[in-house]
């Protein structure tokens, strides 16, 4: 039996979001963190690492892409450019 696969997320700098960088094989969470550190941060790439078992990631699927994401395009009023501002208005 192979070891569990863990997905690795790295925060490159304090204040930024964690970003997915790849995965590692490990038997437990300490080993996963250790392996992620050795593999993905040999050159100052990060200030924090998350590891999550791959099986716990839930993903949308390509077949649903249209129905899943399309409606957002209908709602133009969600974007600031939708609104008419009176001439001469500033700081808005």
């Amino acid at each position: 039996m192979e070891a569990t696969i863990w997905e690795v997320f790295i925060q490159s700098k304090n204040g930024l979001a964690h970003k997915h960088v790849g995965n590692v094989h490990a038997e437990d969470k300490e080993m996963a963190l250790q392996n992620a550190r050795d593999l993905y941060t040999r050159r100052n790439e990060g200030s924090c690492i998350w590891v999550v078992k791959s099986e716990h990631i839930v993903s949308s699927v390509p077949e649903d892409e249209e129905s899943f994401f399309d409606p957002s395009n209908d709602k133009v009023y969600r974007h600031p450019t939708f609104y008419k501002m009176p001439d001469g208005s500033k700081h808005i």
């Binding site: 192979e2 696969i5 790849g22 995965n23 590692v24 094989h25 050795d38 593999l39 040999r42």
Partner: peptide, 23 residues
Amino acid sequence: VQDEAGHGLYLYSACETLGISRD
């Protein structure tokens, strides 16, 4: 040499996404 090991692992990781195991 440690980097080469790392590169191998990045690539195995990419290859596994195609549905083949490391074993």
